[in-house]
């Protein structure tokens, strides 16, 4: 792959040919055992998704930068004790979710917790139809509208949607990352999708 790094550092860190094919768990184990290149590969794979997850949740770029750096520093410090107990992405996004919760509790103690289960009513007709983007509509406009709708979702539903689309987590993995039951995670995700779909249909 060549040099994956293009930063201010004077060091050039080659990426091992096998790093691209290695699983996340194997790369993390390699980093635990002293392979800094394995960490670089991991970081490249997941930095965008973690950053956007935090950005969508806190809605502040500066705060997202701070939380983002904290998440990766926590991962680095915990490398010695890492063992494969779940998917690496689940492990990583659980660190990100916990760091986010710590921020919310410290700054807004009375705010609604992301772990709260809220039942939101959904318009049946809109929910029954699948979302089909209108031909000719600017995709970027649709994307922008989707982000607006996403921002309007309850935090826990938004988290479920983002974990699925940014982290590629399954319902079970979303439940582990957010510390809720599978049914709760499933319900949140379904409500989030239903609302987004309804909102997109209504916008079109």
């Amino acid at each position: 792959m060549g040099c994956p790094y293009a930063g201010a550092s004077a060091y050039w860190y080659p990426v091992m040919p096998t790093d691209a094919d290695a699983s996340d768990e194997a790369l993390m184990l390699g980093y635990r055992d002293g392979d800094a290149g394995a960490f670089d590969a991991l970081y490249l794979r997941h930095k965008g998704g973690v950053y956007r997850y935090l950005l969508r949740q806190c809605r502040n770029a500066a705060l997202a930068d701070e939380l983002f750096q904290d998440v990766w520093m926590n991962l680095i410090r915990a490398r010695a004790g890492y063992t494969v107990q779940a998917k690496f992405s689940t492990y990583l996004y659980r660190i990100a979710h916990n760091r986010l919760m710590d921020h919310f509790r410290r700054n807004n103690p009375g705010s609604v917790s992301l772990d709260d289960e809220t039942i939101v009513s959904i318009d049946e007709p809109a929910a029954a139809r699948s979302f089909e983007p209108e031909v000719g509509t600017d995709v970027r406009q649709q994307a922008a509208h989707l982000l607006v709708l996403l921002d309007a979702l309850p935090a826990e539903q938004r988290a479920a949607f983002l974990l699925q689309h940014e982290g590629g987590l399954s319902i079970e993995e979303i439940a582990v990352a957010t510390g809720v039951t599978r049914e709760t995670a499933k319900s949140r995700l379904r409500y989030a999708i239903a609302k987004l779909r309804q909102g997109m249909q209504a916008w079109q």
């Binding site: 790094y5 930063g7 201010a8 550092s9 060091y11 860190y13 980093y31 800094a36 960490f39 670089d40 970081y43 930095k47 965008g48 950053y51 956007r52 950005l55 930068d65 983002f68 750096q69 990766w72 520093m73 680095i76 699948s130 979302f131 089909e132 983007p133 995709v139 970027r140 649709q142 994307a143 922008a144 989707l146 982000l147 996403l150 689309h165 940014e166 999708i193 987004l196 779909r197 997109m200």
Partner: peptide
């Protein structure tokens, strides 16, 4: 379809200085 639209909307990346700092800390 929602997933496709969302992928089109997800272009944000962390700033470069954060990349350098994090990777340096890892090393």
């Amino acid at each position: 379809q929602l997933a496709a639209v969302y992928r089109a909307a997800s272009g944000e990346e962390p700033p470069g200085h954060l990349d350098a700092a994090i990777r340096a800390a890892a090393r």
